[in-house]
Simulated scan of single mutants.
Amino acid sequence: MILEALGSVLLGLALSWAALRRLADRLPARRVVYPAGTLGALFGAYLTHTALGSGHLPGTLLGAVLVAAVTLSLLIRPGPRRLRRSAAA
């Protein structure tokens, strides 16, 4: 259980770092992104561990990464868009 928690924290931090590197202009401050990724991964590990039971380390870590990715995707703001006007208007 300790290995699952530690692994999920490290994966959540790595996913947060990758999201900040790729989408820095569309995410809020780092002090929001890192805890959101970490807590999302911990919750995902807990949820997956509860569903699968003990002894399924790869499945638990996969669930942690998926929930962390969903949590981080909720933080993404829309990018700048240009207004297009139709020719008829």
Rank of each mutant, 00 (worst) to 15 (best):
S16K: 06
R22C: 00
R77M: 09
R30K: 14
R77W: 06
A89P: 01
R84H: 07
A68C: 02
G12C: 06
W17Y: 14
A89L: 11
L66R: 10
G12V: 06
D25C: 01
P80S: 12
Y34D: 00
A69E: 11
G79W: 12
L13I: 14
L10F: 12
H49Y: 10
P58C: 10
A88T: 13
H56K: 00
R81Y: 12
V32H: 02
L72P: 12
A5F: 11
L72G: 05
T48N: 09
A5D: 00
R84S: 07
A69Y: 13
P58E: 07
G7D: 04
S54M: 05
G79F: 07
F43K: 02
R85I: 01
L23G: 04
T38I: 11
A89D: 14
A69M: 11
G79V: 08
A64E: 07
G44W: 02
G12K: 06
I76C: 03
A14R: 03
P80G: 09
V32K: 02
L66W: 07
L39P: 01
R85P: 00
A29G: 07
A41H: 03
R31F: 12
S8E: 04
S73D: 15
G12F: 05
L52E: 03
L62C: 07
H56G: 00
L6F: 09
R84Y: 08
A87R: 13
A18M: 13
L6E: 08
L61Y: 04
G7I: 08
M1H: 14
R30L: 07
M1V: 10
R22A: 11
A41I: 04
G63K: 11
P78A: 14
